[in-house]
């Protein structure tokens, strides 16, 4: 087993553990921090795949910005009541967990049936490590792909974000007026 697989098992295992911890955490801050841990593990996985740019972006965007915002809003809103009234036995929770477990087992089953995970060899795409290094590092390759081949989708996504920002402002304004 090479380094990548070991790292995958370790980081993936920690991420899986933290996901369960996030679902079961009574305390909202603990849940948010578990999510932060999952983000960090994902960034570590990207890093092990030599995708340093994506790893760094994962850290900057999710760990550095999104999760700070989450934790900030949790700290500012007083969630004492939610924390006290949190129960695993309400019908909606039961339904959610059952659905989640069924979907999870389904995915695992399909994966095990169709891909012999630990035996099959991966078919490498056009961008292997040597090729990427040859083209000037993965940041450059990604930038070229993003701003030439996928330019339109990139712009459309930014437009969607703009719509979301304006929507948030409008909603907040209506409440305060």
């Amino acid at each position: 087993m090479d380094n990548l697989n070991l790292a995958f098992l370790f980081l993936g295992g920690v991420a899986a553990f933290l996901s369960i911890a996030m679902l079961l955490a009574k305390n909202p801050i603990a849940a948010a921090l578990s999510l932060l841990g999952i983000m960090l593990c994902t960034a570590g996985l990207y890093g092990m795949m030599q995708e340093h740019f994506i790893a760094a972006i994962q850290l900057v965007v999710y760990a550095g910005a999104v999760m700070v915002l989450f934790i900030f809003s949790i700290m500012l809103l007083n969630l004492k009541k939610e924390e006290r009234d949190f129960k695993f036995t309400t019908p909606s929770f039961m339904a959610t967990y059952t659905a989640g477990i069924v979907i999870f087992i389904g995915i695992i089953f399909q994966l095990l049936v169709h891909y012999d995970l630990f035996k099959s060899t991966m078919i490498p795409g056009p961008f292997n490590t040597a090729e990427v290094a040859n083209l000037g590092g993965n940041t450059k390759v990604l930038a070229h792909a993003l701003f030439s081949q996928y330019y339109l989708s990139f712009e459309v996504i930014s437009l969607a974000l703009l719509v979301a920002i304006i929507g948030a402002v409008v909603l907040a304004k209506r409440k305060f007026d």
Partner: peptide
Amino acid sequence: QIDSGLIFLLAFAGLEVYPVIL
């Protein structure tokens, strides 16, 4: 020796806000 070293640095600098909050 990371290709995107500066973003990496910013990522870790961004984590410095957690100990304060926590």
